[in-house]
Design a protein around this nucleic acid. Structure first.
Length: 298
DNA sequence: TCCCAGGGGCATC
DNA sequence: GATGCCCATGGG
């Protein structure tokens, strides 16, 4: 069996990564059982089932199914996915300068951001999740993926790859409607898929902009991608470090709880706070989201 | 019943 | 640029 170790820059908590992957939500793109997670990924276009668990000094990975020549692409994938290489100590230094937020560095010590390496999946997921609650959004995603994504079965469990742009570009709006997607969302998804097929939208092309604001602009030209979604995509997929999804409900609630900010019309307070987190705004958002689900917070 | 949920587009002024 | 409305499901 091919195995590998993904080095992690400390502080790093695999338990936090695992907690996020589970969260009590039913994410069809991976499976968490006990202290490991399994996920089907594409390596050179072929499905490979990997398992990740706590390693001696990072994350232990192994290939359960599929053909790969070495652990190298697997290790690369996991490092990108779980942001293991990030040194978050500077972020903690900034957190410690804020009386009410200092606790985040202790409560969630070693939490690195779990990303979505695939841009197409990220954008489609955003569209699905727009303006609906998360459990429902995950259900819709599961039906979409089970219907249109390729999968393999291992030990009696199905693992899925996200549907390809080519597949979703050819799904009729009425078939999307059967998945409880609105007509408008169906159109957005079809359009995004078509742009990917045509090569007019890709992670690689987007990355060439380098500048976060230029990437924002490029994404927001696409129908269905507004400011919030563009921010989210840059955070989760492009690893942009200075994003603040304006108007995000989670950020508002978290800062209301932690710092007593108003729940609405709080732009001034929030921008002032985030201006002190230059280079780490994305991570601050992520830690605020994390704080929402701490114990009694539900 | 009402309001909100990890929004976005569009018309209108 | 700000505001209001539409979309359209499910949870509290």
């Amino acid at each position: 069996m091919i195995t590998g170790e993904v080095p992690a820059t400390r502080p790093f908590s695999f338990a936090e990564s695992l907690w996020f992957l589970d969260r009590g939500l039913d994410d069809c793109m991976h499976r968490v059982t006990g202290d490991v997670a399994r996920k089907l990924i594409a390596v050179k276009g072929k499905p490979v089932l990997i398992e990740i668990g706590k390693g001696t000094d990072g994350i232990a990975t192994s290939v359960l199914s599929g053909q790969v020549e070495s652990a190298h692409p697997i290790v690369e994938y996991v490092a990108e996915w779980l942001d293991t290489g990030r040194d978050i100590r500077p972020f903690y230094k900034l957190l410690k300068t804020d009386t009410e937020l200092a606790c985040l560095a202790d409560s969630f010590r070693g939490l690195h951001m779990v990303g979505i390496p695939d841009l197409f999946e990220t954008l489609v997921w955003c569209v699905i999740g727009q303006q609906i609650n998360l459990p429902f959004a995950y259900r819709v995603k599961r039906v979409l993926v089970e219907k249109y994504g390729s999968s393999i079965r291992h030990a009696g469990v199905d693992y899925h790859l996200f549907p390809s742009p080519d597949t979703l570009a050819n799904v009729a709006v009425e078939n999307f409607r059967e998945l409880q997607l609105t007509t408008r969302k169906a159109e957005y998804i079809r359009n995004i898929a078509t742009l990917f097929v045509a090569g007019r939208l890709s992670r690689q092309a987007l990355a060439k902009h380098r500048d976060e604001e230029k990437m924002m602009h490029a994404l927001m030209e696409v129908r269905g991608i507004g400011e919030w979604t563009a921010n989210y995509a840059l955070m989760k997929c492009m690893r942009a470090m200075n994003r603040l999804p304006v108007g995000d409900a989670g950020v508002n609630i978290a800062l209301n709880r932690l710092k007593g900010f108003p729940k609405k019309n709080n732009r001034k307070e929030i921008e002032a706070l985030f201006s002190r987190f230059e280079g780490w705004k994305t991570y601050l958002v992520y830690y605020l989201w994390r704080s929402l689900r701490e114990k009694s917070a539900g």
